[in-house]
Write a protein that binds this DNA or RNA. Structure first.
Length: 467
RNA sequence: GGCGACGUACCCAAGUGGCUAAGGGAGAGGUCUGCAAAACCUUUAUUCACCGGUUCGAAUCCGGUCGUCGCCUCCA
């Protein structure tokens, strides 16, 4: 089975072929650490997590690099206002970022390079571009990339940038440059930058926005690597500029596959602070919403589809996960011996699961096949108990699938002694046929998010996934 | 103005030329239960925004209309 990805560069699905057999090198655009990340940011990171996990599922060795951008206009402004160095200012957001990705079950990348640790690499790259005569310096000490020298400019975004004259932001750009479309590789120091600057061979100042990704991807992945991802809003100008810089400097092709994930909307609208529908992950968690429900919502819509984040969806997600986990849990019960085998069912659906994901990460199809598999096994089990061997086969299947999804594993928090006592009290009440008391305690526990399940073999409990 | 995406049941969401239009949620019915809940089972679109066309055959291809949305210099 061949894995195919939609390549923004060619605007079509292409069979994925890594440069080095069995190994995938990918660069995923990471956070600018000037504030706590919002759920839109995490949609991109969850998408990248799915990509990474699936590549590993397929047997590839994955080398993922995700940048931490810790110097930019906003950071400089805020840090100076607070009288902190940019490192001091960004530390808590950087720590929060790592905490948040752990919370969402996002697997760590191999390298998280910070921009400020790679100034010399950037300077080296800029010097190389200048030596080739593809960049120029302005009076304020800034260095611009000369877009007219790079004929392929605009190929990724499919934009004709020659007659780009409307953008309102252009007016706000106080730097001088020869052509509107030229972009900064290096920004000369200005008084308002305060202490934030580097004295380098190319002058005193700080890097432009795009150069860090070119410099750091090259350092850790080489001049030419397999996959580069980000949100659709990065297509232009960020990724377009990266390509121009990198290919101009190295003379080699930069990236083979460009994957971009669509935006997240909230309750039908673009997420914005003024509309009051702006959510940071931490705010949702503070409301008591379960992280796995958030992960599921972000994960379960195809990455090239706009994702409308709603509270209804969180609820539906929580129930979907519950169904998966209940099924998994049901396998823990002791089983009889028998002669039945369900290998065929499992094999069929595992094949489906893989085929769907092979097709540009069709997660909806893949989840569909998972639920069908569960349903088929449940229906089968109604009449015929599974054998120990069957249970092993099914567990194996779930583990494999969950290595990609990462939604089924729960480390169930243990009960507090008070909760424990309540359950015991209810057991006693039930034994005494004191139903009113038993029901009262059951409601009490439910309020605490604990669901009791009375079965012929006794009473068990589980925590409700909160939304 | 330029470029592009999308419109499938009550909600979410796959499917992009031909098998019964996946799957999840919600609803209805059932099994279980002291009653519940949970779990599980059964069930829910003669039809894919609308109108034309191509084709033996279209949700799927082509043209048009309506609607929603994105990008066009520092936002994932």
């Amino acid at each position: 089975m061949a894995t195919r990805f939609y390549n923004t560069m060619t605007r079509r699905k292409e069979i994925f072929q890594p440069i080095e057999s069995g190994k995938v090198r990918m660069y995923t655009c990471g956070p600018t650490v000037y504030n706590f990340a919002h759920i839109g940011n995490f949609r991109a990171y969850v998408f990248e997590d799915l990509l990474r996990r699936y590549l590993k599922f397929k047997g590839y060795e994955v080398i993922q690099v995700m940048n931490i951008t810790d110097v930019d206009d906003k950071i400089i402004r805020e840090a100076n206002k607070a009288g902190q160095t940019i490192r001091e200012f960004t530390r808590k957001y950087r720590d929060a970022f790592f905490e948040d990705i752990d919370t969402l079950g996002i697997e760590r990348a191999e390298v998280y390079p910070a921009a400020t640790d790679h100034i010399s690499e950037m300077v080296g790259l800029i010097s190389k571009i200048m030596d080739k005569g593809l960049a120029y310096r302005t009076d304020d000490g800034s260095i611009y990339f000369k877009v007219s020298e790079y004929p392929k400019y605009g190929r990724l975004a499919h934009l004709n940038v020659t007659d780009m004259k409307r953008g309102t932001r252009v007016q706000n750009d106080e730097y001088e440059k020869e052509e509107l479309r030229d972009f900064a590789l290096w920004k000369g120091w200005k008084a308002e930058d305060g202490p934030v600057c580097w004295e380098t061979a190319i002058g005193k100042g700080r890097p432009g926005w795009h150069i860090e990704c070119s410099a750091m991807s090259t350092k850790y992945l080489g001049n030419h690597f397999d996959i580069h991802t980000g949100g659709v809003d990065n297509i232009f100008p960020h990724h377009e500029n990266e390509i121009a810089q990198s290919e101009a400097a190295t003379g080699e092709k930069f990236v083979n596959y460009w994957l971009h994930c669509e935006h997240l909307m909230v309750e039908g609208d673009k997420m914005s602070k003024s509309a009051g529908n702006f959510y940071r992950l931490r705010e949702l968690l503070d409301k008591g919403i379960d992280a796995s429900a958030i992960r599921y919502v972000l994960l379960s819509t195809h990455y090239r589809q706009k994702l409308n984040f709603t509270f209804d969806k969180l609820e539906a997600a929580a129930k979907s996960i519950t169904r998966l986990r209940d099924f998994k849990k049901s396998l823990d019960q002791p089983v009889n011996d028998g002669a039945l085998q369900i290998d065929q069912i499992v094999e069929k659906y595992l094949r489906d699961f893989e085929e769907f994901l092979d097709d540009d990460l069709n997660i909806s199809g893949a989840l569909g096949s998972l639920f069908r598999c569960i349903h088929e096994i449940n229906a089968f089990r109604e009449s015929t108990p599974l054998t120990d061997r069957d249970v092993g086969v099914v567990s194996n299947f779930l583990d494999k699938v969950d290595s990609v999804l990462n939604v089924m594993n729960v480390s169930e928090r243990t009960l507090s002694s008070e909760e424990q006592q309540l359950i015991e009290k209810r057991q006693k009440a039930r034994a005494e046929r004191n139903w009113a008391e038993a029901d009262r305690i059951r409601d009490e526990l439910l309020k605490r998010g604990i669901i009791l399940e009375d079965t012929p073999s006794g009473t068990s409990w589980k925590r409700k996934i909160k939304t």
